[in-house]
Computed example of a mutant assay.
Amino acid sequence: MSTTERRTGVAVRGLIRRQYFWGIIAIVLLLLVNVVKDPAFLAVSVNSLNGNLVGNLVDILRASAPILMIAVGMSLVVATGGIDLSVGSLMVVAGAVSMEFIKASGDGASGGVALGALGLALAVSALLGVVNGLLVSVVGLQPFISTLVMMLAGRGLAKVITSGQNTAAANEPFRWIANGYVIGLPVVVLLAVVVVVIVALVVRRSALGLMIEAIGINPKASRMAGIKPRGLLITVYTLSAVLAGIAGVFATASVMTVDVSRTGYQLELDAILAVVIGGTSLAGGKFSLGGAVVGALLIATLDKTIVFLGVSSSATPAFKAAVIIVLCLLQSERVRGLFRQRRVPDARVPGAEAPRASVTV
C-alpha cells in the first residue's frame, strides 16, 4: 500500500469517527428518500423575474437558519457543563419586542425603524442572558433550574409585552432580513453563515474556546489555573441569548407576526438535538460548531421530509424520534464496537479463526 493510500485511509477512518459524519449520512439518506418520491426534489432553479434561487434545498437552508443560531449558542453553553432551556422563550421575547416597536412607530418603510427594532430585540435578549449567567455563576443555581425558570418567565414576559395577543406589523426593511435576497441567495442564510463564522473565529482563534472547554472539564482545576469561570459563564449565557434573539428576529420577520404561544415553541429541544448530533458532549468539556451546523441542517431536512412525505401531525413526533434514535445509535462507539466484534472472530473461542494482522478492530 502506497503512502498516499495509507494517508487517505487514515483520513477516512478519522472522518468516520467524528460524530457529525453520521449526521451528514442521515441528511443524504433523507434527501434520497425525498428524491425517490419526487426525482425533481433537489432541483434548484433561478426565478426569471428576479434572478433568485428557488427550490427545496433553498427552503431547507432558510429553515435551518434559526435552528443554527440557537444550536451554536447551545454548543458553547453545553461545553461549560450547563444547558440553556430558555432559548425558545427568548426567541418569542425578541419577536414580541421587535413587532411592538415597529407597530408603535407606524412606519412601514423606514430602515431606521428596522434597525431600532433589531437592536432593541437583541438588547433585551442580552439582558435576559445576563440574568441567566448571574443565576448560574453568582447565585449558584443549577443551569437546568435557572434556564427553566427563564423559559417560563420569558414566554410570560412576551405575553405581557403584547398584552397576550399575536402582534403583526409592517416594515419592509425588517421583513427583508428574513425574506430578502442578495446575489440570488436568501439574506437569512447569509446572515446565519456570517454569524457562525464570526463566533467560530472568536472561540477557535483565541483562548476563549479552550477556557470554555476547561470549565466544562474541571471547574476547580480551571479556577486554579487562573481562569475566572464567573465572567466566562455570564459571557456564554449572554451570547446564547443574543443568538436566540437573532433566531427570534429571523422567525418573526419571515411572517411579520409574533405568535406568543407558537414562536420558538420547543425549539430548545431541536437545539439540544442538533448539538448532540454534532458531537458536543452533554457532560461538558468539548464542543463542535461544525457539528452544530450539521445538526441544524439535519433537523431542517428532517422537518422538510416530514412535510414532503405527508406524515400526519399525530405521527410526526414518533417519526422524528425514530430517526434521531437510529442516528444516535450509529454514533455510539459501543454499538459500532459490537458490530466490529461480530465481524472479527474471537481467537479465544475453540475453532475460531485467529484475526489477521491487517484487520483493524
Rank of each mutant, 00 (worst) to 15 (best):
M1S: 09
M1C: 04
G9H: 03
R17H: 10
R17L: 12
Q19T: 12
F21T: 14
I27K: 00
L29V: 15
V35R: 09
D38W: 07
A40L: 11
F41E: 05
F41D: 03
L42K: 02
L42W: 07
S45G: 12
L57N: 08
V58L: 05
D59V: 07
L61T: 07
A63G: 01
A63E: 11
S64L: 09
I67D: 02
M74Q: 15
S75R: 06
L76H: 03
V77G: 01
V78S: 02
A79N: 02
G82H: 05
I83Y: 06
V87G: 00
M91E: 13
V92K: 02
V92A: 10
G95Y: 03
A96D: 06
V97E: 05
V97N: 06
E100L: 12
E100F: 02
F101M: 14
I102M: 15
G106K: 09
G111H: 03
G112R: 04
G116E: 03
A121E: 04
A121L: 02
L128S: 10
G129N: 03
V130K: 00
L134D: 01
L134C: 13
L134K: 00
V138S: 04
V139T: 05
L141A: 12
L141V: 13
L141F: 14
L141Y: 06
Q142T: 13
P143K: 09
M151A: 13
G156I: 03
A158L: 06
T162N: 10
T162S: 14
S163C: 04
F174H: 05
R175A: 15
W176R: 14
W176G: 11
A178W: 02
N179W: 01
N179P: 02
Y181T: 14
I183E: 11
L185I: 15
V196I: 10
V199F: 12
A200F: 13
V202C: 11
V202M: 13
S206P: 05
M211F: 07
I212V: 14
E213I: 00
A214D: 06
K220P: 00
S222G: 00
G226C: 07
P229D: 04
R230G: 13
G231P: 09
G231K: 06
Y237C: 06
A244I: 11
G248V: 10
S254N: 11
V258G: 10
D259N: 15
D259P: 02
L273E: 05
V275C: 11
V276I: 15
V276C: 07
G278H: 09
L282H: 02
A283G: 14
A283V: 07
K286V: 03
L289V: 09
G291V: 10
G291L: 11
L297M: 14
K304W: 01
I306Y: 01
S312N: 12
S312W: 04
T316S: 15
A318S: 11
F319E: 00
A322H: 02
A322R: 03
V323K: 00
V335G: 04
G337M: 12
L338T: 03
F339G: 15
R340Y: 12
R343W: 09
V344E: 05
A347C: 00
R348P: 01
V349N: 08
A352D: 07
A354P: 00
S358L: 12
